[in-house]
Design a protein around this nucleic acid. Structure first.
Lengths: 219, 219
DNA sequence: ATTAAAATTTAGGTGAACCTAAAAATAAAT
DNA sequence: ATTTATTTTTAGGTTCACCTAAATTTTAAT
């Protein structure tokens, strides 16, 4: 039986390696899990023993097929619970992550099957992130970060790059949520900021930092 | 922050002392938690340090007011999740206990408030056990165990004494669930068994052991 | 009242998951 | 290429929650 701590390590390694990197460094893992590098080495060695992780000294860790399946299942559970919290219990999206972080560790395949069904087999979570299938496949959507749109183009928000509470609060205050229409009015060259109209209504200026973190589908 | 293990000890002590007993013995706790008596002594001493438990050497343990509140909250969470699993996800009642056992440890007051509301503020769980209020009050229902009814009397099943899987499976096979009408046809003196008609339909003979474990409301 | 039995605690030890400080290996900078 | 800086690992230690075996206390039985 795998522990919560072990599960969290697998998730962290998944997160680091999912984009491009082929292995996760000790420090990177330590940072995500708010622990020390020494503890990470310790745990990685145990996970390597159990063949959940591929590990070579000083070369970082990556997930074995088994480890990858466990991590994917965790993400599936996490995101399904986020949908539950958002759709059924009406939690605002800033609050769902921390609770889902606890719920993802509940062990019952039948529970997740029934939950998935109950929620109507959602394909994306309330942040716009894809929910992997039971078999571990991630749906890919062709989305753009807002800063890639040209002046005059309109996008519908389908996702955000990260889930920092302050960021989500900021969006909330601007009444921006998944499905919100964002029209690029003007791209200001000198500081890379973007003037945007929200749902044919108010206007805001997004610094580059923000517009890069908003994923939209062109309209 | 209280650990899962600590929470389980508080629940066990609650269970033992809730009826009459004023303190829980080491062995009794060990049996419930499938652990050794020595481990129990160990943990009780820590809980006593934290003032969650009142403890005197060789005299057993009981809950402090704080400990009692925590235990009651756990039972509230457990039973609310059981309602969720049963009502919303349509789990049969034999399966809900083990999953709820995991879910009860999730920490978020707001989650429980919203869940309670979402479920329609249920007062009893799918086994017929009362769900304590937020303030920790248990509703009492005047119920009788089936073996106390006289011949000719009818009761509606409102609860069961325990949740052993085999017992619940047995009831399931007989199509007995909460709300089922049970009419006492004959009480057999020589072995204390009871002949019962189920929902004006089939007849069964319950040994004393069974009829004592079924709680009904007289009709 | 002794003795026997049962319950409880103490003593000593284990593994998991963390820690700090020091050593070793790798990467970067001059 | 050598030094410096960064990353990673090792060494040694802690706490939590368990364990077995032995000692102690309480309870029950003769």
């Amino acid at each position: 039986m795998i522990s919560f701590a072990e599960e969290n390590y697998l998730k962290a390694i998944f997160k680091i390696t999912e984009k491009d990197r082929k292995s996760a460094g000790t420090n990177a893992i330590a940072q995500i899990l708010h622990t020390s590098a020494a503890s990470v080495t310790d745990m990685i060695q145990r996970l390597s023993e159990k063949e959940l992780v591929l590990y070579e000294k000083y070369k970082g860790a990556s997930l074995s097929p088994t480890g990858n399946k466990i991590a994917t299942d965790l993400i599936r559970k996490h995101r399904l619970w986020e949908v539950f919290l958002s759709d059924k219990l009406h939690f605002p999206w800033q609050k769902i992550h921390d609770i889902a972080e606890q719920m993802e560790h509940i062990k019952s395949d039948e529970l997740i099957d029934k939950l998935d069904n109950y929620l109507g087999n959602p394909r994306f979570d309330p942040h716009g992130d894809p929910i992997p299938t039971k078999e571990g496949k991630f749906l890919i959507r062709n989305q753009y970060s807002l800063d890639l749109l040209n002046e005059g183009e309109t996008g519908v928000l389908v996702g955000v790059r990260h889930h920092l509470t302050e960021f989500l609060n900021y969006l909330n205050e601007l009444k921006i949520a998944l499905g919100t229409e964002l029209r690029v009015l003007k791209k200001l060259e000198f500081d890379k900021s973007t003037r945007v109209r929200i749902n044919n209504n108010e206007e805001v200026i997004f610094p580059k930092k923000i517009s890069r973190d908003l994923f939209v589908k062109k309209k």
